[in-house]
Structure formats: structure tokens, C-alpha cells
């Protein structure tokens, strides 16, 4: 679905590509062009209204930083995206272009661990002092979902089946990796168990 960015894309950045889905177009630019593209979008193309900035974790493929701008006069969207490699989670700050990017970048910094270089005050925003980890990364597992079982039936019919019913494959809560590859193991077992492939084809999450 990715194709050259068309007229608007060309005016945003010479190297941009566009992806259309569900009636919306997302423009991809290189991380090096990020601030220049945002400046051009604001000054030359009229996308003056800053809506939000966030990131999406694609695990081994890196992370996307996405921004949404709006043109108040033409009533047009601009979804702009850039892909950061896992090895270099760092991007120039957009606070010089949109003052409102400040909190959004602080939130993205604490939630994903992306460093926004040049940000005047890059400290955690929402998380408590001393919080460790980046909660919105995919390798951050919600341990409470495993530690405390859901009080009740998870599947229809489970509660009236009683104890005599044949045991189903234990259904894990969504987002919790296979216990074979994640979580504590009894020390007696010695070697690490071999990572089993996920039944639903989702990529595995490293411990």
C-alpha cells in the first residue's frame, strides 16, 4: 500500500511516502527530516493546529513516532509518521515548532523510552517518581494479569460445566506471554525451557 507521497507528500518532504487506509492518508518521512517537515507543514501548508504526538512499538522493527496536525482553514488532516530503529530510539524535538508537543514528547519519552533531543525539560510526566521501565513498550508485561487470576468464568459455558468437563487449554489473558517463555521458573528445572511458538502466531515476547 506504500507509494510515493503524491503532491502533498512531495511538498512535505522529497523522500516521503504515503499509505492510504480507511479514508485516511499517513505520510512517512525519514527521522532526519522530522523537524524540517513539521516546520514546512505548519508554515507553508497551513497545518497550524497541533493535535497529538505519540509512538507505536513494533518490537524488532523499531518504533513509529506519529503526529497528527489539522489545517483549520481547509479542514484537512495530516498524519505524519517516522520509523526509528530499535538501536537508536532518538528523535529531534518538535517543541520548537509546536509548543504543545512538550507534554506529548515527555509522555512518549516515559512510556516508550524515546529520547527527544533538544527538549527543554525531558522528565517523566504522568508516571510516579522512581518508576522503572517504559510501560507502553510491548516487552513490558502487565504482571498483575498473571499474578491474580480473573475471578470468574472467562469463556461462555465455563461456569456451568463444573469440574467434570474436560480441561480446556488454559486461556491466558490477552497481552500475557506464554509461561514457558516468561515469568519465574522453579530453580530445580535447571536449563531454561525452550521458547514455544505462540499458538496465535503473534511474535514472542522476550523475558
Amino acid at each position: 500500500m506504500t507509494e510515493p507521497g503524491g503532491e502533498l507528500g512531495a511538498r512535505l518532504s522529497a523522500t516521503s511516502t504515503a499509505e492510504a487506509a480507511y479514508g485516511q492518508v499517513t505520510y512517512d518521512v525519514a527521522p532526519a527530516d522530522w523537524v524540517a517537515t513539521l516546520t514546512r507543514a505548519r508554515d507553508d501548508l497551513g497545518f497550524t493546529f497541533f493535535d497529538w504526538l505519540t509512538a507505536v512499538d513494533h518490537e524488532a522493527d523499531g518504533m513509529d513516532v506519529v503526529v497528527h496536525l489539522w489545517c483549520l482553514d481547509r479542514r484537512e488532516h495530516l498524519l505524519l509518521r517516522t520509523r526509528l530503529p530499535t538501536a537508536g530510539l532518538s528523535l529531534a524535538t518538535a517543541t520548537g515548532v509546536f509548543a504543545g508537543a512538550s507534554w506529548h514528547e515527555r509522555e512518549t519519552f516515559e512510556m516508550f523510552g524515546i529520547d527527544f533531543t533538544g527538549h527543554p525539560h525531558l522528565v517523566p510526566l504522568l508516571l510516579p517518581d522512581g518508576f522503572e521501565g517504559h510501560p507502553l513498550r510491548k516487552d513490558f508485561v502487565l504482571a498483575a494479569r498473571v499474578a491474580k487470576a480473573w475471578p470468574g468464568a472467562k469463556e461462555p459455558g465455563e461456569s456451568d460445566a463444573g469440574h467434570t468437563a474436560p480441561a480446556r487449554r488454559a486461556s491466558r489473558p490477552p497481552g500475557v506471554p506464554d509461561p514457558a517463555v516468561w515469568g519465574p521458573h522453579p530453580p530445580a528445572t535447571g536449563a531454561e525451557p525452550a521458547p514455544a511458538p505462540e499458538p496465535d502466531g503473534r511474535p514472542e515476547v522476550e523475558p
Binding site: M111, P124, L125, L126, L127, P128, P135, L136, F140, L142, R145, P173, P174, G175, V176
Partner: peptide, 14 residues
């Protein structure tokens, strides 16, 4: 801010 943060976006994912 953040005194009432409860990780809504992370919870959405599960």
C-alpha cells in the same frame, strides 16, 4: 500532573 494516571492505554492493549 499524573496523580490519577492509571495506564488506560496499556490496559486497552489487553
Amino acid at each position: 500532573v499524573g496523580y490519577m494516571h492509571r495506564g488506560a492505554e496499556k490496559l486497552f492493549e489487553v
